[in-house]
Amino acid sequence: MPILPMFPLGTALLPGAGLPLHVFEPRYQQLVHDCMAAPDGPRFGVVLIARGREVGGGEQRNDVGTVARILLDTEIGNGRHVLECVAEERIRVVSWLPDDPYPRAEVEAWPDTGSGPVDLSPLLGSLERLYDLLDRLTEGNAPPPPSPSELPDDPGERLFAIARHVPMGEADRYAVLSTPGPAERLEVLTESVATAIDLASWKLQN
């Protein structure tokens, strides 16, 4: 199984999402150096921290994550880096290896399971309602919702793309990331959008 450098973060990174990073810890400076020299390209795994902090080590980590590819590496002095990355495929950690000096893990790809069409029409309608509420909350400054024509054709990827536009906490985002396939993802995402609508409605009334 492939071994990847791993970067535990306080973020559940969904496939297709951008990831800016400011790297200042020496162990992760070494990770960036090793990634940029890797023959298969500058890639590392990202998992959500279950308990603990990003800085200092000793954190507890979730086992579902994504592969991030470094698109741009800017050195800003004293060994620090500013990275622009993008999340690619989803992975599961099979086993964690010793941090030497940074986290590493044996991983496996985790493509969606299950097939068949899913009806996204109710979800897209709810998303439009949510963005209408957000627009009212921000006095017209909310970004527009994603256009259906701009979303991927694959149902699973389409749902990940929608999820990237829904305001939610990291635990909810991780729940979306951890769904086995489109049907389960649709169910979790529908609940997240409904929660966001309830919260936005409450804020408008108070």
Rank of each mutant, 00 (worst) to 15 (best):
2 P>Y: 02
4 L>D: 09
9 L>E: 10
15 P>E: 00
16 G>L: 03
17 A>G: 09
17 A>Q: 13
19 L>C: 04
25 E>L: 10
27 R>D: 11
28 Y>Q: 12
30 Q>H: 03
31 L>H: 03
34 D>V: 07
35 C>N: 00
36 M>A: 14
38 A>V: 09
40 D>G: 11
43 R>I: 13
46 V>Q: 06
47 V>R: 05
47 V>H: 14
49 I>Q: 03
51 R>N: 11
53 R>F: 04
53 R>L: 10
54 E>N: 09
55 V>T: 03
57 G>Q: 07
58 G>A: 10
60 Q>H: 11
61 R>M: 03
62 N>F: 13
66 T>S: 12
70 I>D: 02
70 I>H: 12
73 D>Q: 07
74 T>H: 14
74 T>K: 10
74 T>A: 12
76 I>R: 06
78 N>L: 11
81 H>I: 10
86 V>L: 02
88 E>L: 11
88 E>A: 04
91 I>T: 13
92 R>I: 08
93 V>I: 15
93 V>Y: 12
93 V>P: 02
100 D>S: 09
101 P>K: 13
102 Y>D: 06
103 P>M: 15
108 E>W: 01
111 P>H: 05
115 S>M: 00
115 S>N: 01
116 G>H: 04
117 P>A: 15
120 L>M: 13
120 L>I: 08
120 L>C: 14
121 S>D: 14
121 S>C: 05
122 P>G: 11
124 L>K: 11
127 L>N: 10
129 R>G: 07
132 D>V: 02
136 R>L: 15
137 L>D: 10
138 T>L: 12
138 T>D: 13
141 N>K: 15
143 P>M: 07
144 P>S: 12
149 S>W: 06
150 E>V: 00
157 E>M: 07
158 R>I: 08
162 I>E: 04
162 I>K: 02
162 I>D: 01
165 H>S: 15
166 V>G: 01
170 E>L: 01
177 L>I: 05
177 L>E: 05
178 S>H: 10
180 P>Q: 01
183 A>V: 15
188 V>Y: 04
191 E>N: 04
195 T>V: 02
196 A>K: 13
201 S>R: 12
206 N>D: 12
